[in-house]
Design a protein around this nucleic acid. Structure first.
Length: 426
RNA sequence: GGAGGAGUGGCCGAGAGGACUAAGGCGGCGGUCUUGAAAACCGCUUCUCGUUCUGCGAGACGUGGGUUCGAAUCCUACCUCCUCCGCCA
């Protein structure tokens, strides 16, 4: 959420920047509500001042056993008027809050203006598309040969798009997760967090998922709890309503969780299998920084994601997303996209965003500056590191051999008892 | 699920209708002393909002309602935590 005082201070400039994301955005209704709100709050506070003064007088009179009934009658009227004004103020509060919830983050000036994925700007490319001397299979065929994934039973147990990892498939997934957690914690200095998978509405609000995207979330029937679509959600609320010390920033967290997405809407046949599912695994990176350092911390976050893909020997490219393609809470987002040989397309395995103070305002997350100035909002950053389910597709398709076996990348072998290749079932 | 107890500033903690100021401590900041530091001593230090901004005002004591001229304090609903019992990996 934006800071209303900031919006008030330079409305034209902010409106213009928001329109880079969505030309239909107008701040007019919000500004009108805010002007009315300030007018009423001023009136109410003037009356409260009067009430405080006279109430004190009444206390003194009573102590001296003098008559105060006229003052009490007068103050009763004042109190009623205050009640009326405050009721109206509360309604305006709620209306302003609703307007504010609809507004996305202000895009960073370095973000290209555009509404579709086509407007993304290529930042980096690594490795090459693998060429096959045979007809390559897609990951579904490969999973069938090796018995790694069971989609039919997943649909039986839950519903379609809930894959089950079996045998070597489960072990390979597990190896990927272990590898990534190791790198983040031992080499990159992230603190590992294993958070709840269920969170309350306040947590969903803080990250930006509520109120606008409730339809994307799984919600429990009996408790006021939601299943997390990403561990960005619990990590964002980890320091909610806290005041941090600048000396401790930046904070760097990594977490592993399953992620749950209703993904309402239909996708084409090319997104069958593991590419878009209701439950998938993800290791997440998360940073809490000062405003001065968030830009460079984003750059290193992207590198942390990219290096994982490199060590797995997978071809990828990294793109800077355009204004219209970013999540509500993000001011700047880089996507790391891995090459899927069978789909002949790049697919996102990591999305790294600088949310600046958008989530910090919602969650009231601040820090005490070293120099003793006023408390300020932190900046929050998140990035997948990485989404394994989709990464597994890239691994299978890239490392397949003509007989359907899968070569295990060097980095993963120590997590798989030294196995060099996964063979098809005989 | 049952029965009790408790939620107060960055942290601990007092306050139980009116002293216009939420005591006191810890921590933090500044100073005195010191070669330097520690200790000791002396100050300063909750947050949010509005504003015509060196100032003024309003609000906040888990959250929302209510009673009252006036609520941290009384009533009410809810939330969270702790202790014990029950169930359970």
């Amino acid at each position: 959420m934006l800071d209303i005082r900031f919006v008030r201070s330079q409305p034209e400039e902010i409106e213009q920047k928001l329109q880079r994301r969505d030309p239909s955005i107008s701040l007019r209704p919000l500004l009108d509500l805010d002007a009315r709100w300030r007018e009423l709050i001023f009136q109410s506070e003037e009356l409260k001042k009067k009430r405080n003064e006279v109430s004190e007088l009444i206390g003194r009179l009573k102590k001296e056993k003098k008559d105060a009934s006229q003052h009490i009658a007068e103050m009763k009227k004042v109190s009623d008027e205050i009640k009326r004004l405050d009721g109206e103020v509360k309604q305006l509060d709620e209306a302003i809050h609703r307007e504010m919830c609809e507004l996305p983050n202000i895009p960073d000036d370095s973000v290209p203006v555009g509404q579709t994925k086509e407007d993304a700007v290529l930042l980096r490319e690594w490795g090459e598309k693998r060429q096959f001397p045979f007809q390559p299979r897609n990951h579904l065929e490969l999973a069938g040969l090796t018995g790694m994934l069971d989609f039919a039973r997943g649909a039986k147990l839950a519903e379609s798009q809930f894959p089950i990892y079996v045998g070597m498939g489960a072990l390979l997934e597990w190896a990927l997760l272990s590898f990534m957690v190791d790198v983040h914690t031992r080499e990159n200095g992230y603190t590992l967090i294993l958070p709840p998978y269920l969170v309350n509405p306040q947590s969903m609000f803080t990250s930006g998922n509520l109120p606008k995207f409730e339809g994307d979330l799984y919600k429990l029937r009996e408790n006021d709890l939601y299943l997390i679509p990403t561990s960005e959600v619990p990590l964002t609320s980890f320091h909610r309503d806290e005041i941090l010390d600048e000396e401790n920033l930046p904070l760097k967290y990594a977490s592993y969780t399953a992620c749950f997405r209703r993904e309402a809407g239909t996708y084409g046949a090319e997104e069958r299998g593991l590419i878009r599912v209701h439950q998938f695994n993800k290791v997440e990176m998360y940073k809490v920084t000062t405003p001065e350092t968030s830009e460079e911390e984003l750059a290193s976050l992207v590198r942390d994601a990219e290096k994982l893909v490199e060590r797995l020997g997978l071809h990828y490219r990294t793109r800077l997303l355009p204004t219209g393609d970013m999540a509500l809470q993000s001011a700047k987002t880089f996507d790391v996209e891995v090459w899927l040989p069978a789909q002949k397309a790049y697919y996102e395995v990591s999305s790294c965003s600088n949310c600046k103070s958008f989530q910090a305002v919602r969650g009231n997350i601040r820090y005490r500056p070293k120099d003793g100035g006023k408390n300020r909002y932190v900046h929050t950053l998140n990035g997948s590191g990485l989404a394994t389910s989709r990464l597994l597709v890239a691994l299978l398709e890239t490392y397949q051999q003509s007989d359907g076996s899968i070569v295990v990348p060097e980095e993963l072998r120590r997590y798989l008892w030294g196995i060099e290749a996964i063979k098809p079932k005989s």
